[in-house]
Amino acid sequence: MEWMVWTTPTTVFFAVIAAMLAGMTAWEVISPTVERKGFLPISTTRGDRLFIGLLSAAYIHLVVVGFTPLSIWLALGASVLWLLVLMRWG
């Protein structure tokens, strides 16, 4: 694994992603998702909303890091907030 040059932040990042996938699977087993339509233009399942949330979070981070002097923690906060909104009402 040495050649993969792990760092603490990236380890945490992938651990969180893995935990999310595991959590979503467990949630799906306990209570299967129902496809529904929220404020997004397409009807989505829970997994779809998570994916949309994560993808937009990546873009939010890129914009904040690349084009604003703001802290990356602000981007993270905004992304988490957006993810929660999306999961609940998307």
């Binding site: 699977t25 799906e28 087993v29 399942t45 997994g47 779809d48 994916f51």
Partner: peptide, 9 residues
């Protein structure tokens, strides 16, 4: 099965 659509994507 669980995750089929996402797996395919």
């Amino acid at each position: 099965f669980i995750g089929d659509k996402h797996l395919f994507f």
